[in-house]
Design a protein around this nucleic acid. Sequence first.
DNA 1: TATTGTTATACTCTATAACTATA
DNA 2: TATAGTTATAGAGTATAACAATA
Lengths: 147, 147
Amino acid sequence: MTISDPARIATPAPARWTGFLLARAHLRAHAMFQDALSPLALTPKSFGSLTVIAEQGPLSQAALGEMLRIDRTTVVAVVDELERAGYVERGRDSADRRVHSLRATGAGREALRAAERIADSMQAELLEDLDPDEREQLHSLLARIAG
Amino acid sequence: MTISDPARIATPAPARWTGFLLARAHLRAHAMFQDALSPLALTPKSFGSLTVIAEQGPLSQAALGEMLRIDRTTVVAVVDELERAGYVERGRDSADRRVHSLRATGAGREALRAAERIADSMQAELLEDLDPDEREQLHSLLARIAG
DNA sequence: TATTGTTATACTCTATAACTATA
DNA sequence: TATAGTTATAGAGTATAACAATA
């Protein structure tokens, strides 16, 4: 076997480290979701933001950022994007006029439903080798180390 | 409860989606490893590269890139970094003179041992809430969805 | 013609600093 | 003084295209 033999390429990466397994699984999931959601003008990040705004809105940009661990300057860009697509509106909070109170529009809720259907089928593909118990175990374990 | 009430901030992100859980867990693990390895002039990526080179070297840059799913132009930068630190050497493959055959130096193997000790304690912190069976389950499940 | 490695370049993502308007 | 949001800017990280050397 020479150095450049293709047989060596299949050898798995350092599987002892949780971090590498997480990086690989995340890389794959992210690429799948990004491709699948692009027709709706959504990225994984803006999809997550739209989900939170639709389910928990109205809420401030600061609250959104803390929930999704997104820096407030990045939140501005994400909300700009969602607003440009017509999925989210920036309102004013009557109690605190500094705050932009975010809420999903009708089109935003429609896009979200479509995105969820796509995401469900992506997730089915991602988890195709796992039975329902294993899927639940994976979610539970990930939630416990997510911090 | 007002829009900007801090109590809302603790609410978890869309936990139904594997991708979000993976993103969170990966974000945390990456930050922990990056901080912990920086005194050794290693990043998570160069640590992974050094691991592969030490365990499977000598090997070509192309093989390293395919194993770690790193683009070949990025491999150049990572190997530059490891070579500058004195951890890796670029040799020539006598059978194919296009190939750079990578191997770890003595200093590289020493740094790798030190990095592994640090990574082990980071991993213990990352997985502190999981018992040994659960840690093994998590690794097994992640490996099966990593693609 | 195809592949290995390299460089130059551009693009995405994210964070830092400085600002405004409000509190 | 502190916070919400904004802008400008800079820094990672990564990918694309074009090239030289070799197969």
